[in-house]
Amino acid sequence: MYDFTYAKPANIADAVKTLAADAEAKALAGGMTFIPVLKQRLNKPSTVVDLSALGLNYIKLEGGKLIVGAMTPHGTVAASPEVKKALPALAELAGNIGDRQVRYRGTIGGSLANNDPSACYPAAVLALGATIKTNTRTIAADDYFQGMFTTALNPDEIITEVHFPLPEKAAYAKFANPASRYAMVGVFVAKFASGVRVAITGAGQNGVFRHAAFEAALSKSFTPDALNGITTPVDEMNADIHGSAPYRAHLVGVMAKRAVAAAG
């Protein structure tokens, strides 16, 4: 790891100021992605800005929405009675990210800022049509994810909270990469009065994406069988030593059915 200056600002304004002051300054949330990257010397920040004192660790229900502060750890979301009641699929998802130790520290904000193509939260945020609130603006999920490790965030912008609309039904089905246990394929389905949204993580070449064909079919009939015969384009799938593109395309269908079944 290269050395850097460590800063732990006490409010958002100071944090933004520190980040803006230096192009090489970087935010630190749970560190579950960032610290391994630093250890491999793949990143050389001048200043590391710890966001843990900004008061962004909270969960609340407001105006029919579930609001999760950016610094809320996965484990807190998983265990939260509010989340379990209002949006159990999200608690379930959070409870299966990484391992117990990762969940104590890794945060929703860090996961979304990082936008790892095999991360779990992006699927929930996109399928639920959530809104990402930053220190300057709100960004709709459909505009936020812009391909692997790429988002609409500006370099010195900080995610502050995520607003989730509450669906009638929702579920997440994850097929874990056997080695890393990240999502090799993760499918989040969310049924609203207005229709069904389906987001796929892990599988696509361009990170998380919505599955229009699944959405159309499920909006007509929210049953696993409604997905019979609907395929996922193989040439848009990722391929690596853990699975070919056809395998991933197939798993997208299997996990989607399982998610619909779990949503009930």
Partner: peptide
């Protein structure tokens, strides 16, 4: 080596 870490080598 493609499976050069525990992220890719399945323990």
């Amino acid at each position: 080596l493609l499976s050069g870490s525990m992220m890719d080598y399945t323990m």
